[in-house]
């Protein structure tokens, strides 16, 4: 199935959970916040929240800024 992550279409296995997806991308879950279909997920939800076909994801983290 297909999800849209930070504006890019990505092919992933059906039933993939957020935590698994982040680790596939090489991201440390503790430093990333996930907004899925407009809703901010809590860290506790990463393990249980399964991505749906067509889900729109925004992965956000702190960067340098003034």
């Amino acid at each position: 199935m297909k999800v849209f992550c930070n504006g890019e279409a990505q092919e992933i296995a059906p039933g993939t959970r957020v935590a698994e997806y982040l680790s596939q991308l090489g991201l440390d879950a503790s430093s990333v916040v996930v907004e899925c279909d407009g809703k901010i997920l809590t860290r506790e939800e990463y393990g249980s929240h399964a991505l749906q076909d067509g889900s729109v994801l925004e992965l956000i983290r702190f960067v340098g800024g003034g």
């Binding site: 992550c5 930070n6 504006g7 890019e8 991308l25 090489g26 991201l27 440390d28 430093s31 990333v32 925004e58 992965l59 956000i60 983290r61 702190f62 960067v63 340098g64 800024g65 003034g66």
Partner: peptide, 18 residues
């Protein structure tokens, strides 16, 4: 210190000031 928020650069997953 101030920090900003941006989309993760999927090509540079380790670029993390934290």
């Amino acid at each position: 210190v101030t920090v900003a928020l941006r989309r993760v650069d999927l090509d540079n997953p380790d670029d993390d000031i934290m």
